[in-house]
Design a protein around this nucleic acid. Sequence first.
DNA 1: CGCCATGTTAGAGG
DNA 2: TCCTCTAACATGGC
Length: 289
Amino acid sequence: MPELPEVETIVRAIRARLEGRRIAGFGSLWPANCTPAPERIRASVAGRRIAAVTRRAKFIVLSLDSGEHVLVHLRMSGRLEWGAANGNPSFARGAERREAPPRHARAWWDLEGGERLWLCDARKFGRILLTDDLPAATARLGVEPLGDEFTLERFAALLGSRSRQLKPLLLDQSVIAGLGNIYADEALHRAGLHPLARSDQLAPAQVARLHAAIRDVLRRAIRANGTSFDWIYPEGRMQAYLRVYGRAGRPCRRCGTPIRRIRVGQRGTHLCPVCQRRPRMRTGRPRSA
DNA sequence: CGCCATGTTAGAGG
DNA sequence: TCCTCTAACATGGC
């Protein structure tokens, strides 16, 4: 269920254990989530060295010395877990012990030396992609919110060039890539903006506040190693600092008003009705509700 | 049983 | 063409 900060935390954690290592094998217990088929992925990655481990939006990117790239998207319930490959001498010393796969194991990479990296995923929404053309594979992704290209001017243009509700717009990965349900709600609260406000009807100061809020909350979350609600992603501390997400009925940390939960674009959405007033329409008839 | 879930996409309809 | 909403994917927790 990771968003940008959780994926960034995962990437930083696995980088030192993967970069420079050679992949010995790959397998999948859920072939439907592999593109191309697992056998083709295995043929391409076996024997290759991992040159770099990076993140693009919510994708984990393993770049191989062959020029190909393995992209892993954890979607809602994916996580990575370390284990030992079968036949690992240091593990199987003595008795013929075999390590049981972790719960919800779906795919694995074996490294030379005997380590195994598992992809576990209760809901099977996660995806593994192999590509030799990384720009093409990520062409549909929008700007990285923590990158240098995410300037205030660029953001203002992204908002003003369309007329959309702010929350669905922030979740649209083809516009800004990396925000998810938690940090979209958190950024809007920090900026004092209603999730249903129109992207093209913000004052310049509001655009600037939202731009800063997005970057601030993502950086803060990375510093806290992300947000942890359950066993799927246990290593974060950001949940202690969330202002609206998951806090329906509890007092706003700024004004004390109970946080409200509504539904916007199929997603649970949390807001403070006082700090995030629904704006009056600047065009068209006044709304009735 | 019913509702919820840190994500994404295809398709329908306005 | 753009925008919004629904269903779908598949499973587990409360």
